[in-house]
Write a protein that binds this DNA or RNA. Structure first.
Length: 476
RNA sequence: GGCGGCAUGGCCAAGUGGUAAGGCAGAGGAUUGCAAAUCCUUUACCCCCAGUUCGAAUCUGGGUGCCGCCUCCA
């Protein structure tokens, strides 16, 4: 079976055929680095990470490029608010981005170009568009002329004729007045005195948002790439404009496949900075939600659908992850026999088929849970000190099952998490409490025993009674 | 107003013509001083109406509700 993907360009699920057999070039729209990333970014980049891992698992050599937008009004505003510079704000948020993505087990892109370091490519592209009559300058700005480009609107299904009336109402600003058509957009913005700016043939200024992606795609991957990624909120105008610019300049199709992920919603509404209803990745992870729980949470829904972020759903994911995590934490011994027995071969096939079906991670995860189930039972028995369970785990069948589980979990980027590191009470204090509880139990003073357990639980320490009077504890 | 998407059990969510995956929660049982964990068992006719079909959650038409984009946004 071959990979099938929903292509926004055609609004259909299509079989994926790369330009060059065995190779895939991907460009993913990155973040504007004016602030920390929130769960919307996490959802998006986890989805694309899974696409990338799946392609790799399927045998493709993947080149994955993701940009940083480090020239932007919001960054400049932030810099002036805190009395620092655009570079300082960008640098800080890029570091945070790398750290957050790392925690979520998202593979770093092969190359991460920045707008500030791609200015030559940007200026060259604008010049070409100007030479071809696709762009015009007005008062230090340079605009792309949408009416000159035949295919404008093909991605988002917009028709310029029909849209003009609606747009007319907002032709109020000075910028709108300079435009020949309301949908024309800035390729280069002239700088006002005192603004951070860069030199260009059109005077000091800075590039518009859309042109940087066109320039970086071309510089890093060429005129035509296989897959272009981004959030559904980028379809219009960002990606539409990117297509117009690139295709007007090169005369070639920019990308064969356009994939868009659905939004993360809060209370039925899109999570966004402007609405202020966002939770940053690090705030969530620092609150005790494990990275893999967040990953599982996002992968339980299809990447194109909206995903409602609720405490309840997150809790469900956390509990679900506990089970998978227990199985993934088992010790693999040596190399398992790669000749899968029929049942495992079948599971592997079903997993691959689900992933090939437009990244049906929800169905793929069901296979993971199925594989994990018996292993989870073993893990539990081993934890109780059941030696026969340890022996069973060594057997070829279980080792194979574990090997397959680990292999497939890797494809969706799930990996075992060790117990959370200690904080709060030190071990000796906990052990002392456990001894006290043991004494209470021996004296049949169960009320006292329960009180100790409850107190520890309130401090995040969970006690688990084992056979033989042993009590283990976990930080939860 | 224009473009696009979605509606499946208490919650999340797969499933594009053949009789409803999976996770969470709940219930019953085993185990336990009680818990926790674990194991076993168990819980749906798929928003409404009409139609196509031997047969529809799945196709068609109509309706209702919700969301995204049209301004920066993953």
């Amino acid at each position: 079976m071959t990979l099938r993907l929903t292509n926004t360009l055609t609004r259909r699920v299509e079989e994926f055929t790369p330009i060059e057999p065995g190779k895939v070039s991907i460009y993913c729209c990155g973040v504007t680095v004016y602030d920390l990333c929130h769960l919307g970014h996490a959802r998006s980049y986890i989805a694309w990470d899974v696409l990338r891992r799946h392609l790799r698992w399927s045998g493709y050599a993947v080149t994955f490029v993701q940009n940083y937008t480090d020239i932007d009004d919001k960054i400049l505003n932030r810099a002036s608010e805190e009395g620092s510079s655009m570079d300082a704000v960008s640098e800080r948020n890029i570091e945070a981005f790398v750290a957050d993505m790392g925690r979520l087990n998202i593979l770093p892109a092969d190359r991460m170009p920045r707008a500030t370091r791609s200015l030559d490519a940007i200026r060259t592209l604008i010049s070409e568009l100007e030479a071809k009559g696709a762009a015009y300058s007005a008062d230090g700005d340079v605009y792309f002329a949408v009416m000159k480009h035949a295919g404008y609107g093909k991605l988002s299904g917009r028709d310029l004729e029909q849209q003009q009336d609606n747009a007319a109402g907002r032709v109020a600003t000075a910028e709108e007045a300079r435009k020949q058509h309301p949908f024309d957009f800035a390729l280069w913005k002239g700088a006002k005195p005192g603004e951070t700016s860069f030199p260009s043939p059109w005077g000091q200024g800075r590039p518009g948002w859309h042109i940087e992606c066109s320039a970086m795609v071309r510089e890093e991957l060429g005129d035509t790439i296989d897959i272009h990624l981004g959030g559904a909120d980028l379809v219009f105008p960002h990606h539409e404009n990117e297509i117009a610019q690139s295709e007007a300049a090169t005369g070639k199709e920019l990308a064969h496949y356009w994939l868009h992920n659905g939004m993360v919603n809060v209370g039925g509404q899109k999570m966004s900075k402007s609405l202020g209803n966002f939770t940053t990745i690090r705030a969530l992870l620092d609150s005790g939600v494990s990275p893999m729980t967040l990953r599982l949470f996002t992968l339980q829904a299809h990447y194109r659908k909206p995903l409602d972020f609720t405490a309840e759903a997150l809790e469900a994911a956390a509990t679900g992850w506990k089970g998978l995590n227990a199985a993934l934490g088992l010790a693999a011994v040596g190399t398992a026999n790669p000749e899968w027995p029929a049942a495992l071969a079948d599971a592997r096939t079903r997993f691959a088929a689900a992933m090939d079906d437009d990244l049906n991670t929800s169905a793929a995860l069901a296979v993971l849970f199925e594989l994990a189930k018996p292993l989870r039972g073993l893990a539990n028995r081993i934890e109780r000190g059941d030696d026969s369970a340890s022996d069973e785990l060594q057997q070829d069948g279980h080792q194979q099952q574990l090997a397959l589980l680990l292999e497939l979990a890797e494809v969706v980027g799930l990996k075992h998490e060790a117990q959370a590191s200690a904080d709060g009470l030190d071990d000796a204090a906990i052990e002392a409490q456990i001894e006290a509880r043991k004494a209470a139990k021996a004296a049949k003073d169960f009320a006292a025993a329960d009180r100790i357990r409850d107190e520890l639980k309130a401090q995040g320490i969970e006690l688990i009674d084992k056979p033989g009077g042993l009590t283990e504890w976990l930080r939860s």
